[in-house]
Design a protein around this nucleic acid. Structure first.
Lengths: 146, 146
DNA sequence: ACAATACTTAAAGTTGACTTTAACTTTCAT
DNA sequence: ATGAAAGTTAAAGTCAACTTTAAGTATTGT
């Protein structure tokens, strides 16, 4: 069993964050001592890991709360939870492919400034023809212009 | 030349967003008519595409503003801009690898609920031994517990 | 000429996810 | 038994990035 401070440290978050999550109804599974102090168990830790994962996918606290409540309802919500997770998988896959396109654009910009640095002026990369620039950047430059 | 409404449509953002960016100093290059109305050019559009790219990397508007001003200063800031973009490349690469780990966790959860759905209860995937679960999920389940 | 539409600004409001504050209580080590 | 450390709550504050509002000005089509 862990106190809120210990669990916060284990997770790398502030204790106030865990209190906030609890207040928002994300932690209905957390038990209290007679004195009213929260006691976090190992399975609570697993829950917080899952909450952390869903947060990384960009899910809102409200939607995470709905998922937690679904789970609390038991086996009758298995299909719903599966559908929710499948949608979340698609969302993350889309996020990754968008970030990969962003990365290509940033790499183009790096090439642009490397070329400018060698030449001493951005005029050089700015005025290059398609034939002169690395082929993987042609469509990126086009996309930025159109 | 485009009005703010046309440019906003072209970019898929609200006109108020462009006014906000201008007010925050991100668009020092945008010219005005005698009457004070903003006129966006094709190169302004390219600028907004770059701003959009940097925003997708998670850069704050303040830092984007600094980059815009660096560029306005001319060729003496080429090295600084290159360093900034290289750092941003690293940031995006890290974001992608973190999202890929998140994706694996979501895929594990999907497998978990698919298995639960077949069995009619989450007890089945929950009580499986390492030997029974797909090998790629062993370390993910471990990570969630430890 | 004039109505409709789109533009302008400054200032206030919104949102989500926390964080801080204030006043108080519980737990733990000596 | 007592003082420090860590816990508790409710309520207010913060932050970034917009969005909305209000009051007014400019542009465009007939």
């Amino acid at each position: 069993m862990y106190s809120i401070g210990e669990m916060a440290k284990k997770l790398g978050v502030a204790p106030s964050t865990l209190r906030y999550y609890d207040k928002e109804g994300l932690l209905p599974f957390v038990k209290r001592t007679n004195g009213g102090i929260r006691m976090f168990s190992e399975t609570d830790y697993e829950w917080l890991q899952v909450i952390g994962c869903l947060k990384k996918t960009g899910m809102s606290l409200k939607d995470i709360k709905d998922y937690v409540y679904m789970t609390m309802k038991g086996d009758e919500t298995i299909e719903d939870r599966l559908n929710l997770l499948r949608k979340q998988q698609e969302i993350v896959e889309k996020q990754i492919s968008e970030l990969e396109e962003t990365l290509e654009t940033v790499k183009f910009k790096c090439w642009y400034y490397e070329t400018a640095a060698k030449a001493g002026t951005t005029d050089v990369p700015a005025n290059m023809s398609d034939a002169e620039i690395p082929p993987e950047f042609i469509h990126i430059r086009e996309k930025l212009k159109k």
